[in-house]
Amino acid sequence: MSRQNCPHQLLSAGICALILLNGCTTQIIRPESQRLAETLLIRAIRAEHKGDVKQAEALLKESLAVSTSIEDSYAKAMAYINLARLYRSGNHLAQASDNIDAALTFLDPGSAIYAEAAHEKALILFMTNSAEIAQQWAEKSVTNEKGRLLGRQLNLLGRIQLARNDLRSSVITLQKGLAENHSSGNTEEEANSLRMLGIIARKENILTNAERLLTEALEIDKRMAVSTKIAMDLEELSKTALAAGNVASAVRYLERAYDVHLSANRIRQASATKEELAKIFSQQGNAEKADSARKTALELSNKVGIQQSNTPSDTIKPSNRP
């Protein structure tokens, strides 16, 4: 009996010894303030993930204060980037712009997080309709990316090029992005690449390709269960079907997109989708359905009437420092 147990005892003793040795080799004594700043940052990210934006903001500001007290520039830059991202998500673009500019003052292009800061800067500029300068920052994020996020940076550059109607450059960038995302296993960004390539194909009137690419994007987004992206894919598929003259299919896609928006409580988007449906019905001469769709859209608009518009304010003047 004891002989049978002997290997198990030896194995257990070996594991314990390895754990102890591992502790001896990996233990790094870190200053308390630095650990506190990092802990606050992690808690802030968790809070944002749970949807508690106020708590996330408070924790990020606290982390920033701790990092400032020990003059830890790297940690300060991280806190500023995260604050900028938080404000951008809440559509507070002026604050987002101030914070990302503050982050960039602490970073040089050789820094490990410079690409992340440049990406955020490009997104903020893109949202404030400064596509040309946004493109410069997106190019910087691509050039300085040192990690696994090259595909994402390429996608943003391709998206800006697409918005600027530079379809040829956009296709090249997005194809690189697609390959990069596929090889690095970044599935969500892979779907983004496919969606944008689908949009370009539709613009170039290669409708079969467009439908195929958008359907692939939809499949990935459904697998990832990202509601907003599913609705986007359905809307793009509807536009593609309409371009191909397949009105019935376009209506079906839009109705699906409407259901997705409504079920996810995105009332404004649901209203816009109903408005699109009303337009199609009007063009088809189906006044009854058009009126019904318009009435539903109006009811939904009234429901969200007091909510703020997604359009950025005219007072937003982010710095254009390239």
Partner: peptide
């Protein structure tokens, strides 16, 4: 105590999730 404290890699903070098509 090192045995109970989180490993250094787990402590490395990241960023709030963001993608290129937001």
């Amino acid at each position: 105590i090192w045995l109970l404290s989180p490993s250094p890699s787990a402590e490395t903070p990241g960023f709030i999730r963001s993608d290129s098509y937001e």
